Amino acid sequence: SDEELKKRIEELVRRGNKDEARKLAENANSDEARKWWEKLEQL
């Protein structure tokens, strides 16, 4: 689900694993996940 995906992306970003988070968001084929990633990346 998008919610689970967003949690995983956020967790990866928090751990400093941005590349992994980006790949996850891009491969998810989910606009919501991509937007979430872009938002987190700004922080």
Rank of each mutant, 00 (worst) to 15 (best):
V13D: 00
Q42H: 10
E4H: 08
V13K: 02
R8T: 08
K39Q: 13
R34A: 04
D19A: 10
D31S: 08
I9Y: 01
L40Q: 05
E10F: 09
N17P: 00
K35I: 11
Q42A: 13
L12P: 00
E20F: 03
A25P: 00
G16Y: 01
E26D: 07
L40K: 02
A33W: 14
L5I: 06
K39M: 13
G16P: 00
A21C: 07
E11T: 04
K35S: 11
I9G: 00
R8G: 00
E3T: 10
A25K: 02
S1T: 12
N29D: 12
V13L: 15
E26M: 13
E32W: 14
K6T: 04
A21R: 00
E11Y: 05
Q42G: 11
A33N: 03
G16A: 01
L43A: 12
E20R: 04
E32H: 05
E4G: 07
K7L: 10
K18F: 15
E10A: 10
K7G: 05
A28C: 14
R14N: 06
A21Y: 00
N27L: 13
S30Y: 05
E4F: 11
A21G: 02
A28M: 15
N17Q: 14
V13Q: 02
E32F: 11
D2I: 15
V13T: 02
L24T: 02
L5C: 06
K18Y: 15
R14M: 11
D31V: 08
K39R: 13
E20W: 03
I9Q: 00
K18H: 15
G16T: 00
E32R: 05
W37H: 02
Q42I: 09
E32V: 10
R8N: 03
N29S: 10
R34L: 14
N29C: 12
S1Q: 10
R22S: 04
N29A: 12
K35C: 11
L5W: 13
E26V: 06
E41C: 14
W36G: 00
L12W: 02
E38S: 06
A28W: 13
D19F: 05
R15E: 10
E26I: 09
R14Q: 07
A25H: 01
A21I: 03
A33R: 04
E26F: 11
L24S: 02
W37V: 13
K7T: 07
E41H: 11
K39T: 10
E41D: 10
D19K: 08
R34F: 12
K18S: 13
A21V: 02
S30A: 04
I9A: 00
A25R: 02
L24F: 03
L43D: 10
D31K: 06
N29F: 09
L40R: 03
K23Y: 05
E4K: 07
E26G: 04
L40P: 01
E4I: 09
L43I: 11
S1N: 12
A28N: 04
N29P: 07
A33C: 13
V13E: 01
E38M: 09
D2Y: 14
E38V: 05
E26W: 07
L12G: 00
I9D: 00
I9F: 05
Q42W: 06
A25N: 01
D31L: 08
L5H: 02
K23N: 07
E38R: 06
K39G: 06
Q42E: 09
W37M: 11
E20Y: 03
K18P: 09
R34I: 13
I9N: 00
E41A: 14
K23M: 12
A33Q: 03
A25Q: 03
S1P: 12
R15I: 11
K6L: 15
D2W: 15
E41P: 03
N27Q: 14
E10R: 11
S30E: 03
Q42F: 09
R8I: 11
Q42C: 12
N27A: 14
E41R: 14
N27F: 10
A33Y: 11
R14I: 08
L5R: 02
W37F: 15
E3H: 10
L43V: 08
R22E: 03
G16M: 02
W37L: 15
K18E: 05
D19T: 09
A21M: 02
L12D: 00
N17E: 14
A28G: 05
D19Y: 04
S1R: 12
R8W: 08
R8K: 10
R14D: 03
L5T: 03
E20N: 02
A25G: 03
A25V: 15
K6V: 11
L40C: 13
D31T: 08
A21L: 08
S1E: 10
R34Y: 11
A33M: 15
W36S: 01
A25W: 11
A28I: 15
N17S: 09
R15Y: 04
R15C: 14
N29W: 09
E11K: 02
K23Q: 12
L40A: 07
N17I: 04
K35P: 01
A28P: 02
R14S: 06
D2N: 11
S30W: 10
I9R: 01
R34G: 02
N29H: 09
G16W: 01
R34V: 07
W36I: 07
E41W: 14
R22W: 09
K18V: 15
N27C: 13
E41K: 13
D31R: 05
D2V: 14
E38G: 03
I9K: 00
L12N: 01
E38L: 08
R22P: 01
E41Y: 12
E4R: 08
E26K: 05
E41Q: 15
Q42Y: 07
E20V: 04
E3C: 15
D2E: 12
K35D: 07
L12H: 02
K18R: 14
E32A: 11
E32Q: 08
A21D: 00
E26Y: 11
L12A: 06
E41F: 14
D2T: 13
R14Y: 04
W37G: 00
E10Q: 10
G16V: 01
E4L: 12
Q42K: 13
A33V: 15
W36K: 00
E26P: 01
L24M: 06
K7W: 10
W36Y: 12
K23S: 08
E11H: 07
Q42R: 11
K23R: 13
K23P: 01
K6P: 00
N27S: 14
